[in-house]
Design a protein around this nucleic acid. Sequence first.
DNA 1: TTATCTGGCGCG
DNA 2: AAAGCGCGCCAGATAA
Length: 606
Amino acid sequence: MESVYILVGRRGNGEILVEVLNDSGVTLGPARPVSAHDFPSLVRHEELGSPRWVWEDTASIYPVLLEAGVRVERAHDLRLCHAILRHSVLTAASELARSEPSRWDAALAFVAESRDPGATLFELLGDDIDADGDGDGHGDAGFADLAAEFRSQLAAVAETEEPGRLRLLLAAESAGALIAAEMRFAGLPWRTDVHDELLTRVLGPRVGPGVRPVLLEKLVGRIRLELDDPLVNPDSPPELTRALRRAGLAVTSTRAWELKELDHPVIEPLLEYKKLARLLSANGWYWMDTWIVDGRFHPEYLPGGVVTGRWATRGGGALQLPKQVRGAVVADSGWKLVVADAAQLEPRILAALSSDTAMADAGRGTDLYAGIVASGVVETRAHAKVAMLGAMYGATTGESGRLLPRLARAYPRALALTETAARAGERGDQVTTRLGRSSPPPGEAWYAAQSLASSEGAGDADERRARTQARDWGRFTRNFVVQGSAAEWALCWMAEIRRELRKLTAEVEAGAGADVGVGVGAGAVAGSAFASGSPSGDGGSVFADVPHLVFFLHDEVIVHTPEYLATRVATIIEEAAATAGRHLFGSFPVDFLLTVATVDNYGDAK
DNA sequence: TTATCTGGCGCG
DNA sequence: AAAGCGCGCCAGATAA
């Protein structure tokens, strides 16, 4: 079946243009203008034919559709896909990679920063968000530029030896962009009352800004007493270091792990203080007031925000939600959270990347580290873990370094892959993930340091610096291959989960004889950035009654689902992991084990 | 005063 | 036991 693409662009006057293309990017008819107001209904209608929407930036356009109650099944995000193809060594010979930098390169950062979730449809779709600076706006020429870019991307992929890989990567990256927008829109269910109780229990009652809660103040009192310093501020590392030294403790820093080694009565209250002060400043009442809107946490997810292809986030530190506060993530009444975590994802990815069947065997149907122990490679699970991490991160010393030779003997292919990636980085070469995302080349300064060291009259210091930098970059490329390929697996996993959840939704709605139209129509929730029509959060939104992804954390997802569907959701997530593994690694026999928990609150999921 | 850097720590 | 990858965010310190 031939794919149909619909290209979406805009004119300077706020009007939107849509044009149907075939799967070579060739126009099948004239571009049709549509007003910003009518755009969501057009999309809803065209969705019946399952097109792939081709647009510049999902993060700018899709929130508008969600707000209007419209979801789309598939997209091609020109901005994200360009970034991949521009830097991949697989497409280095393509026109796209060889042409002069254009707005697709220079303007990316600008577009990414210009988003505003509260912006109106007109602002998002009608405004000039191109940063080409030539002031000619976006007449039909701008639209033609989108079509040309799309064709250029298709051509770059088609020219590669195994186009299926990059095709999958671009589809996964684009699906990720849809998911990112949907997760932000839906938000993570968050009970501020539960959060407040938790804070009050460990810090004392809420106080204004600049005031220490009472339990924290008490700890400060004990610290000052034990250090015999009535004024020391434990929030100031220099002050604290001086005070500790005066008390006879030979510290080089105030880091918790260094303090833990010391035997002194101040250590216990000090470590406790650090823990609680961190909670207050990072996820205290101020955080709650700032980031929780109508019972939902709405961080902005940035697909491709990390060089390796991992996601970044902006706002609220969503990827660092401490375990301490996860109890405040509570399913709505009548709903459940299905929390799934890929167990030992990166070693499994490494086993598959390197076709190391022995390592894959160690993880078959069991905890991979336990499997390594069972194979007699090392004595304890902790050893297996630290040795594996050392192999993937490039440890040379300590316990990890000592255990590496045993790992290398048992799993030569896996270890050879990480070594090869490290050597490539040390030479300044790029490395590439399973699906084709390449590491950036090192910067000018790096090359300069290398050539300086090998030039006539280079000093010992020059050589040492060059060697250090080469090894540093080698550790980066060593890890890039594994972390980046794991990120690709996670994207495929999530895309598959999303697809199956939509099928489940359609099935349930058909079975119930319900009106299959989702959402409440354009404009019904205008004025709210997140479409929260009821106190429980999702009322009136496109996710009001259906299971949907609400959180993603590198190798972990959360689906918020009506309770009666929780079992089926868990099955979908399990099967999606196996499917993602096949998409990346074909028939190579590697398990991607999950731990899946159906819970009322995130804190209960281990 | 504001802008940027640093130490420290949360997550994977 | 604290090396070895990728991030974001905070308070305090320092530069401008």
